[in-house]
Amino acid sequence: MGAELNRLARRGWRVLHSIPLANDVDVDHLLIGPGGVFSINTKHHHNKAVWVGDDAVKVDHGKPAPYARKSRAEAKRVVRVLEHYCGFPVQVEPVLVFVGVTDLKVVATQLSVRVYQGRQVAALAPLSGVLTAEQVEQVYSVARHRQAWSKA
């Protein structure tokens, strides 16, 4: 997933991987670019079928997992940190990326989390009009400092 996201650098995007937060959790990937900021939560379910509804995710018809809720909460934590240090509003969109799945069915009608399968994340590359080049660099500069995340 990291290599796939790194390819977006040619389009003006910056990527950070495995940002540690408080309570032994982390942001898998943070994508910052002209189209905004995306908190990417990667889920590996090798050779499994995944179903995504409005607020539930089921792997091979199993028990619902709170992936969407956790992705939204993670994005809110990222917003708090970035806005605190950047001094301007920073919208962060949560993204769920499923890797290694055999099938991904998204039936959500009101899902506030973007959902992709591995290589589909490249769909974010052409997005623009949210952050200026200067804002991208400022957000990236803040996001690179591990100390900013220590209490998030």
Results as ranks from 00 to 15, higher is better:
V130M: 10
V15R: 14
A56R: 15
G12Q: 10
V130Y: 11
D103L: 09
T102F: 05
Q117E: 15
A133V: 08
G12P: 13
V106F: 03
M1G: 06
Y85A: 09
R72K: 15
A68W: 00
H46N: 07
T109A: 11
Q135F: 10
P20H: 08
P64Y: 00
P66F: 00
P34H: 12
K105Q: 12
P89L: 06
V57H: 01
R72H: 12
T109P: 06
L16A: 00
K76G: 01
S18C: 04
H61N: 10
V121M: 10
D54G: 09
G118H: 14
Q135S: 04
K76S: 03
Q147L: 02
G87D: 06
Q138S: 06
V27I: 15
V15H: 15
H61E: 12
S39W: 04
G87E: 06
A3S: 14
G12L: 10
W51H: 09
V52I: 13
T102W: 11
D103A: 09
H17K: 09
V106L: 07
V107G: 13
A65S: 11
D54E: 12
P34E: 12
V81A: 13
P20G: 03
A133Q: 13
G53D: 12
V50I: 13
R7A: 08
K76W: 00
T132S: 15
I32D: 03
V115T: 15
